[in-house]
Amino acid sequence: MKVLRSTLVWPLVALVVLLVFNAVASPGFFHVEWKDGRLFGTVVDIFNQGARVPMLLALGMTLVIATGGVDLSVGSIMAVSGAVAAMQVNAGAPMVQAVGAGLGLATLLGLVNGVLIARVGLQPIIATLVMMVAGRGLAMLLTGSQMVPFANRSLTWLANGSVGGLPVPVVLVLGLAVVTGWVLRRTAAGLFIEATGDNEKASRLAGIQTGGVRLAVYGFSGFCAGLSGVLEAANISAADPARIGDTRELDAIFAVVAGGTALTGGRFSLAGSVVGALLLQTLTLTLYNQNVAPAVAPVPKAVVILAVCLLHSPRLRARFGKRTQPVAA
């Protein structure tokens, strides 16, 4: 419980502060109503939009960062998978096949990242930077740089439908997060990922196939990005190769870091990343509600993220720690 508390507490505190601010500043913020068999309201929107991109990307990114790497290519992989799914349904393929093709190609691109890093030995930041550029180019190539609109109700349902009153993306992504967390702790995968990120050399000498671990996490990150790209396209019934996922890799990294997983690798917290993603989305929406111009919004966003990261910093905590230690002990 102690470990859980120490990593989760600061993003949660920040989230609560933001929510309280909203409750005061914009009445009706917490207003949720039941209409046409589903929930509507600002809070539902936060969950929905948060799940669709930052949370999903952060799931994969958490594991990548836990191995001491980073994946800059997720935004571009989103564009590729969104484009592939859109083109597939336009070619008459059923929804499942279209989504499968998008996810398959996205996972493959993630695995290419993994091979470049684990087998060829490129720096993660370089390998995924290459994929970031190449992936965006590939999406443009596939679509002829044109927006691909489509009319497929089952694909659109993935982003705009509801299950048991909740938006489909929320159910899908929270479900994926729970399953991922469960698998990582039920198998030894979580341990191997943390060991690889904390001390790769020692892990290899203890018999862990650190190359395989890295390959797998980049593959998984590609998969998550692929799903996110499909949901983004489904949301507006069109795949825009130039804009889907643009700079969203940064949102994912922010969510992971704010959630308490260190960029140096090792211990990770999926729950922290989920909260981090919600924090980011709440912040975006809050600024929108307060009529902050979208072009200026990154500034207050950066301030809040910096504050959360500072609260995670061991040095700063050591200072707090001196005063609070008697209480904690």
Binding site: D198, N199, G266
Partner: peptide, 9 residues
């Protein structure tokens, strides 16, 4: 340190 322990585990 380098080839043995996984320090934060």
């Amino acid at each position: 340190k380098v080839e043995g322990i996984i320090p934060s585990l």
